[in-house]
Amino acid sequence: MASKAPPSIFSPQRRAASRRRMLELQRRRDDAARYIIDDMVEDVPERLSFLRFEPASALIIGDYSGELARTLRTSMVEVTEREPGFGFEEEEPFPFEGFDLIASLGTLDTVNDLPGALVHMRKALAPGGLMIASFVASGSLPVLREVMLAADGDRPAPRVHPSIDVRSGAQLLQRALFADPVADHRTITVGFRSLDRLVEDLREQGLGNVLADPSPALGKAAFSRARHAFAAAGASGRTVESFQILTLTGWKR
C-alpha cells in the first residue's frame, strides 16, 4: 500500500519566495532584523562544546548570516552550506551524505513533511554524526495571534502558521530513528513600538505567511483595528512579543 502523502499546509513556492525576499532585505539593509538566526547560530557551538563533539565535516541549512560556517571553519571543519530559497529540497533525499554534523536553522517550521525531512537528515549523516535543528515553534507570537483574531472579527481567517511543541518534536525524533533524541525550547522576547515594526521584522527574517491557502489581506479598517489592539496589549508605547525556539538534537548510530 502506498504511503499517505503529507497534507499541503505550506506552499513550497511561497516559502522559497519568502526566503529569497528575506535574503534580499538582509543584503540591502544594514539594520535588518536577524535576532532569530543570531540566537540559533550562537546555540550550535555551545551545544557542540557541551557535548565535546568536534565534527570534521558539516552541512549547514538555512543560515543566511553565514556566521556558523565562519565559526566552524576556524576549527578546520569542512563546511557545506545550502539555502532552501534557492532550490535545496529538505523533503527529498539529500544529494550527498557522510556529514559529521548537520545544522538546520530556521527552516523546518514550514516544511509539509517534517518527519520525512528529519529522516533525510539522519540518512545524510555519517555513523556517529549529530543533527541539530532549530526553528520557531508552538507558543510563538501570542500577541499577534490575538490581534489577528480581533482584526478579523466574527470571521477569523488563518493568518499565523500552525507549529509543533516540544513533546511533538521529541516524538518526531524517535519516529525518524535518531539515537539519544533531545527536544528543548527557549524563549526570545522582543519589544515593538508598533505592529508595523513587528510585520517588518517577520519579513526581514523570512517569517511571513507562506500557507498554501492564504487568507485575503486585511483591509484598511481591519488593519487599523489590529494596530490599535497591538498597541493596547503593551505599555509605555511598547508591546512585548515572544518567540519560542525549539531545538531538536539526535545522533546516527
Rank of each mutant, 00 (worst) to 15 (best):
R203D: 13
R20T: 01
V147P: 09
F50S: 09
H161R: 11
D100F: 02
G129K: 06
A231Y: 01
I132W: 03
V190G: 05
N209T: 00
A183W: 02
A137G: 12
E78Q: 13
E200M: 12
D201K: 01
R73L: 05
Y64C: 12
E54P: 04
L108W: 09
P12R: 10
E46K: 13
Q26N: 07
F53W: 10
V111K: 08
G128R: 00
D63E: 11
A183F: 03
V160Q: 06
R122V: 00
E97F: 10
L207P: 04
L23D: 15
G169C: 01
A32M: 01
L114E: 03
L48A: 04
A151D: 10
S65K: 09
A56Q: 15
G191Q: 04
R27S: 14
P181T: 04
D109F: 14
K4I: 11
E90H: 05
F10H: 07
I164H: 08
S242P: 10
A231S: 14
D180Q: 14
K252L: 09
G62L: 08
T247P: 11
R29K: 14
F86P: 08
D165G: 14
E24F: 07
D201H: 14
H120Y: 10
S194C: 07
S49E: 15
F178I: 00
R197Y: 05
V182Q: 11
Q205N: 03
V143L: 07
V119L: 12
K220I: 13
D180M: 10
D201Q: 09
Q205S: 07
G85R: 00
R159N: 09
V210R: 00
M121Y: 03
V166Q: 15
M1R: 14
S224I: 00
D154V: 07
T247E: 10
E91Q: 13
Q13H: 12
R122N: 07
I37C: 08
R225Q: 06
A69P: 11
F86A: 09
G128E: 02
F94W: 15
V77C: 11
T71G: 03
L23T: 01
G129Q: 08
R122I: 00
R73I: 03
L59M: 09
F178L: 05
D113Q: 06
